[in-house]
Design a protein around this nucleic acid. Structure first.
Length: 137
DNA sequence: GCCAACGTTGGC
DNA sequence: GCCAACGTTGGC
């Protein structure tokens, strides 16, 4: 089992919209970055990912589950990029903000802090457990 | 709205 | 293959 973090701007696609899709989930399209692409390809069905809201909120609001592994992104005309399908798995009781992550010694090494522009990032099991606790899950 | 960080493009 | 110019992301 691997852990990930995916980012979305709520104005484009929010957690609430993701929850609204239910068990069917939704294609996570629009990744146009090779590092992020590598991470998408490495995802396995059943892996879990933190759902982070950028720009608005700047906080991890819940957990999504990968329900379909990487396939060509239908929104990419060049055919170079891929997407996966994810569904909402569990909402955080308490969102974990970027500010909280930055000041926390255990989390200040997260890719979210170090590589703030990367939209799909790996999360270590230690970070995962810790953030889940903070989120009240 | 600004700007730092960083990824991508294209000329050489 | 290098690197300058340019574009984009995302926190503030």
């Amino acid at each position: 089992m691997n852990y990930w973090l995916v980012k979305s701007e709520p104005s484009v696609w929010s957690w609430d919209q993701q929850v609204g899709k239910g068990a069917k989930g939704e294609a996570w399209t629009g990744v146009r970055n090779y590092t992020a692409r590598q991470n998408l390809v490495a995802m396995k069905k059943g892996d879990l990912a933190f759902y982070y809201h950028s720009n608005e909120g700047k906080e991890i609001v819940g957990i999504a589950e990968i329900i379909k592994e990487a396939y060509p992104d239908p929104t990419d005309k060049t055919g170079k990029f891929v997407c996966v399908d994810i569904k909402a798995h569990k909402a955080f009781k308490t969102p974990v903000t970027l500010a909280a992550i930055k000041v926390d010694k255990t989390l200040s090494e997260m890719a979210l802090v170090k590589q703030s522009r990367l939209s799909v990032q790996p999360v270590t099991p230690e970070e995962w457990k810790y953030v889940c606790k903070l989120g009240g899950v």
